[in-house]
């Protein structure tokens, strides 16, 4: 299974390097959204709950863009069939795709957070944010892979991905936004609350195990 996961991740990274589609689009989309928030809210600087909310809504919507593209090459260029013909565990597709999405999100967030700090955020960024980002990324990666695999074989893929991903990530956004809010507060950062990290961890665990158990059924024909 390690062999197959490695092959799939490698293939996706080469493809992404050669024809960068998803990741740059996600960064540009996020920056555009910050500009929109600036004008829509008429705020030069944001902090606290508002900053946290803007950041997470933007990141989630940017993630939806990436989720939409996740399986396009597999579907349109026969990747599913090629993979299914190989003597490998089918769950390796889930692990590989979730890892790729996770890496994408991390890479995108480096740029998005920098842009956020420059454009909108009042207080300076705290290193503790990384913990929240990593836990939330894991959750988005798992649920995003599931949603993308569900939607890719349907006629209404572009519609279904956001419609499914947004309600499913509500607990994730609640926990991530609440956890980040004290870190983004003006005048000395508040402490990271353990219970929100616990919710994020629980979410990752529940959907990770669930995806592991049922992903095979999405690949079969």
């Amino acid at each position: 299974m390690r062999r197959a996961i490695g092959a799939l991740i490698r293939k996706d990274l080469i493809l992404q390097r050669r024809t960068p589609e998803a990741a740059p689009a996600m960064v540009l989309f996020s920056i555009g959204t910050f500009v929109l928030f600036h004008f829509a809210l008429d705020e030069r600087e944001v902090s606290g709950n508002l900053a946290s909310g803007i950041l997470w809504v933007t990141l989630l919507f940017a993630a939806v863009l990436g989720i939409n593209r996740l399986f396009v090459a597999e579907r349109e260029e026969g990747g599913f069939d090629g993979f299914l013909l190989a003597p490998v565990d089918r769950t390796s597709m889930l692990v590989a795709k979730a890892t790729v999405l996770f890496l994408f999100l991390c890479a995108v967030e480096v740029f998005v957070l920098a842009a956020f700090a420059i454009l909108l955020l009042g207080p300076s960024l705290q290193p503790a944010l990384v913990v929240v980002l990593l836990l939330a990324n894991a959750g988005i990666a798992v649920i995003g892979t599931l949603v993308a695999a569900l939607a890719i074989q349907t006629r209404a893929r572009d519609l279904l991905v956001p419609l499914l991903a947004i309600p499913l990530s509500v607990p994730l956004v609640i926990a991530a936004a609440r956890a980040c809010a004290p870190l983004l507060t003006e005048g000395g950062a508040g402490a990271l609350e353990a219970r929100w990290l616990a919710v994020l961890g629980l979410y990752d665990l529940v959907f990770g195990l669930l995806a592991y158990a049922i992903f095979d059924f999405l690949l079969e024909e």
Binding site: A4, A7, E77, G78, P87
Partner: peptide
């Protein structure tokens, strides 16, 4: 060995990369 209508090759990879991908999958 399956050869259908579809070549089952990624269009943006080279021929060698495509085959290396399948070589990894098949060991």
């Amino acid at each position: 060995g399956f050869l259908g209508h579809d070549p089952l090759l990624y269009r943006d990879l080279t021929a060698r990369e495509n085959l290396q991908f399948h070589a990894r999958l098949h060991g």
